[in-house]
């Protein structure tokens, strides 16, 4: 770790074997609002991280910043590892959930269809008070 107080920045070198690049991206993303971050490859397998504080910091504060970054690196490395280990299990759970949801959807669609059908209101027969059922010939037959 190299602190450049005059430039308000701290340089960190990490091994990509210990901290994968994904973890570096993750940790850097967390610090984007507080610092300007620049990544470079020093040697093969060594990542140089430049943290430049947006606000003026003294040596102690820059040291703390680097410490926090290391912690975040560790945090993301572990996350990455767990994510890799659980990948198959997660995929299985998601696929099961999707299949389940698909089945429910089909049932819901069927239910909606039956609900949407308009119910015919059958009124009770109140008698042919208009005389509609009487044939025309019969009704107007010359007597």
């Amino acid at each position: 770790m190299q602190i450049k107080e005059s430039e308000n920045q701290v340089l960190i070198t990490v091994s990509s074997k210990i901290y994968p690049l994904e973890a570096v991206y993750g940790a850097a993303y967390v610090f984007l609002n507080r610092t300007y971050i620049f990544l470079d490859e020093k040697k093969k397998g060594e990542i140089l991280i430049t943290l430049k504080a947006k606000e003026k910091m003294d040596k102690k504060q820059l040291e703390n910043l680097a410490g926090e970054f290391y912690n975040e690196l560790l945090n993301y490395s572990l996350r990455n590892e767990i994510s890799k280990n659980n990948q198959k299990l997660r995929e299985y759970i998601v696929s099961r959930a999707l299949i389940g949801a698909l089945g429910e959807d089909e049932e819901e669609v069927e239910l909606e269809k039956t609900e949407e059908e308009p119910e015919e209101k059958i009124e009770e027969w109140k008698g042919d008070y208009l005389g509609l059922s009487i044939p025309w010939e019969k009704k107007f037959r010359k007597k």
Partner: peptide
């Protein structure tokens, strides 16, 4: 310069 670098990093992520 610094903002540009940060933006690129956010896009990489």
């Amino acid at each position: 310069e610094d903002e540009f670098c940060n933006y690129v990093l956010s896009q990489v992520k």
